[in-house]
Simulated scan of single mutants.
Amino acid sequence: MPLLRVATWNINSLRLRIGLLDRLVEALRPDVICLQETKVPDELFPAEALRPLEFPHTVFRGMKGYNGVAILSRVPLAVHEIAPDWCGKGDCRHIAATLRTPRGPLELHNFYVPAGGDVPDRAENPKYGHKLDFIAETRLWFAARTGLARSILVGDLNIAPLENDVWSHRQLLDVVSHTPAEVAGLTAWMQAGFIDAVRHFVPADQKLYSWWSYRNRDWRQSDRGRRLDHIWVTPDLKPALKSQAILKDARDWPQGSDHVPVCVEMRV
């Protein structure tokens, strides 16, 4: 049965870090790469510069300086245009595609959830309110899609939901990305139709991170990370899951992102 490797990475500027995609491809050998924070408007998307990577099927949605998502694929795909404009902002935080696989189509969603600012108070910090509204909208939309199957959701969801998805559950309870309101919202979204494909392989009592702050110079020694980057699959794909990888060494790449790539392999 054919295998499919799907990788997700918040690249934190595609044009700045495009040269690092070679390393990602060499390390993970993905069939599909989902990128977030591409920070490039569609008319300037570097399609020619990406051509040597040999991902002939590409879809993207971007804007100048902020946000932006893209999917690079060796598997034929088509843009999936059924999702709404989340929170009515038109801010390029989601792109979906249908992948053509031997056993039938796979629906793939690539998200970049709002970071939410620094203050976990909706009244004081509108960015936090936007984040909570965003994940509430996505939960309701997916919950309404009864019978959702053969679907994958990936991306920088900007929330570390489990106690061991952060370096200190107690100290980060009032830090945006691990507050109870965010965790409840993300958990409800996942339960609207998905399972956590990475935690399928790594028990919840084990520490697991995909992001380390730029502010921490000796990030590996202190290891104060958070798991902000996720891959979910619909329950029908659970038996197809084969392996997962978090490319921690990518945090040391020259001019690297503060996020590292996450990858899941499955039989399709």
Rank of each mutant, 00 (worst) to 15 (best):
82 I>C: 06
256 G>Y: 05
31 D>P: 11
154 V>H: 00
225 G>E: 08
198 V>L: 12
267 R>S: 15
60 F>G: 01
160 A>T: 08
136 A>D: 08
136 A>F: 04
161 P>A: 05
122 R>L: 01
12 N>F: 01
190 M>T: 03
198 V>S: 07
69 V>S: 03
212 W>Q: 02
18 I>R: 14
249 D>T: 15
220 R>K: 14
256 G>Q: 04
262 V>P: 03
224 R>H: 13
112 Y>T: 01
155 G>H: 03
158 N>G: 04
170 R>A: 12
21 L>G: 05
120 P>F: 05
142 F>C: 09
220 R>Q: 14
119 V>L: 13
266 M>K: 09
193 G>L: 03
174 D>W: 12
218 D>F: 12
187 T>E: 15
86 W>A: 09
146 T>H: 13
232 W>S: 02
241 L>E: 01
129 G>S: 05
89 K>E: 14
257 S>F: 04
102 P>M: 05
74 R>F: 10
162 L>W: 11
4 L>I: 09
207 K>I: 14
169 H>L: 01
240 A>F: 08
116 G>Y: 07
165 D>Q: 07
241 L>F: 04
133 D>S: 15
238 K>L: 15
195 I>Q: 08
168 S>G: 08
137 E>W: 12
106 L>Y: 10
20 L>P: 05
55 F>W: 09
67 N>Q: 10
78 A>N: 04
182 E>I: 06
80 H>R: 14
227 R>A: 06
223 D>A: 15
234 T>V: 06
193 G>F: 02
76 P>C: 04
268 V>M: 14
185 G>M: 04
165 D>I: 06
28 L>Y: 01
99 L>R: 12
111 F>G: 03
170 R>Q: 13
185 G>S: 06
235 P>Q: 08
73 S>D: 01
28 L>C: 11
172 L>T: 15
71 I>R: 11
175 V>Q: 11
59 V>W: 09
232 W>V: 00
57 H>W: 15
10 N>E: 09
220 R>H: 12
124 E>Y: 10
101 T>K: 12
21 L>E: 00
25 V>S: 05
127 K>T: 00
55 F>R: 08
52 P>F: 10
71 I>N: 10
64 K>M: 11
47 A>K: 14
78 A>I: 03
2 P>K: 14
217 R>G: 04
161 P>T: 03
3 L>H: 13
268 V>F: 15
265 E>D: 07
16 L>F: 13
248 K>P: 00
78 A>L: 09
139 R>I: 10
162 L>I: 06
219 W>V: 10
204 A>C: 03
47 A>I: 11
17 R>Y: 03
1 M>D: 05
160 A>I: 10
203 P>Y: 06
186 L>N: 04
2 P>M: 13
217 R>T: 00
53 L>I: 02
264 V>M: 12
166 V>E: 05
124 E>T: 12
53 L>N: 04
141 W>V: 09
137 E>A: 15
199 R>V: 07
41 P>V: 05
54 E>P: 00
70 A>Q: 06
106 L>N: 02
1 M>V: 10
89 K>L: 15
98 T>D: 10
48 E>C: 03
22 D>T: 14
194 F>P: 01
226 R>Y: 08
102 P>S: 08
80 H>V: 02
30 P>E: 08
92 C>D: 13
253 W>R: 12
193 G>V: 03
132 L>E: 00
72 L>E: 01
122 R>W: 08
210 S>L: 02
189 W>K: 00
241 L>Y: 02
82 I>M: 07
11 I>H: 02
